[in-house]
Design a protein around this nucleic acid. Structure first.
Ligand SMILES: [Mn+2]
Ligand SMILES: [Mn+2]
Ligand SMILES: [Zn+2]
Ligand SMILES: [Zn+2]
Lengths: 155, 155
DNA sequence: GCAGTCCTGCAACTCTGTTGCATTAGACCG
DNA sequence: CGGTCTAATGCAACAGAGTTGCAGGACTGC
């Protein structure tokens, strides 16, 4: 996790302002946390980071995340563990790729997608959005080639 | 949903036998249901179909699905509604595509994937499996072009 | 058939996310 | 600034999918 810079808070505030809706401490704080994260965060992880500042209710965090997603400031990824993960949606288009670690569950966004374009759908189906999921092992979980494996990390 | 043919039951039984583990009524029944389905089914849908035969506990169905998945006979898809969907894994490889209807939640497998092959991962990450998710509207949910929309279907 | 093990049923539980409602605090106006 | 109007928050209770522990039942191999 990168240190939270002043820039993240400012960027968060600006982005929330731009929507035209109310700029609340909670919205700015959650977006700031997402902007500072190098990977997608669960509600749980966001809550922990948020509890360093003034009180914020779990339900509020859920509602803020929903709001950020609806306003295109965050996006929401279904994991293999029934838990949503979120990250700031800076410049994420309709076509998108994610890496899921099959061991620790870490999820990161992948920038480039050489996406399958000419994909055949059944008669009458219409495509709106493509998402490519790569499942595998992250650098921390990948077994070492001949050295003994490092201690497992869990987020 | 296609009619359950004798072939589905036989195929299910054969597939379960081949694993070398115990051939139970419950395993065969669940796999048969998956083989007969034209799309991925939720636990709930499987339960309903299963209740036409002799009693089978919900927990057993969860455990059978887990077992089928672990043995490569079924595969498990995370939806946008926090519900797992399953289908028989006949000939599904490491690279795979699904269509998710954003209106009714229907999930189907797409056969061909012109998958992104030369995809850049961060240093040290290893890819095991690719999955392409297409989100859109299924034929039933797609708004009619000029006629009034048909009654919504819900599964 | 019999023993041994794996699987099933049942009940209680966990965990993530949701809903209803009273209270608080942004935004806007003067 | 201070008042007002409304959207957002906090709190408590709830919902639903999936999990766990354990006793009893049913496959399989002999
Ligand atoms: Mn992303
Ligand atoms: Mn599939
Ligand atoms: Zn990992
Ligand atoms: Zn649909």
């Amino acid at each position: 996790m990168r240190a939270v810079t002043l820039t993240d808070r400012d960027r968060a505030e600006t982005l929330v302002e731009r929507t035209g809706a109310r700029v609340t401490r909670q919205r700015v704080e959650v977006l700031k946390i997402l902007l500072a994260a190098p990977r997608a965060l669960t509600h749980h992880e966001i809550e922990q980071r948020a509890h360093r500042g003034p009180r914020m209710d779990r339900v509020t965090i859920y509602r803020v995340l929903e709001w950020l997603t609806a306003n295109g400031l965050a996006h929401k990824i279904a994991g293999d563990d029934r838990v949503w993960r979120f990250n700031a949606a800076e410049g994420h288009g309709r076509t998108h790729a994610h890496f899921h670690c099959s061991d620790c569950g870490e999820v990161i966004c992948l920038d480039e997608v050489a996406a399958a374009r000419n994909l055949r759908l059944p008669q009458g189906y219409r495509s709106q959005e493509l998402e490519l999921t790569v499942r595998g092992l992250c650098a921390a979980c990948r077994p070492a080639r001949r050295a003994p494996p490092a201690a497992r990390h869990r987020h």
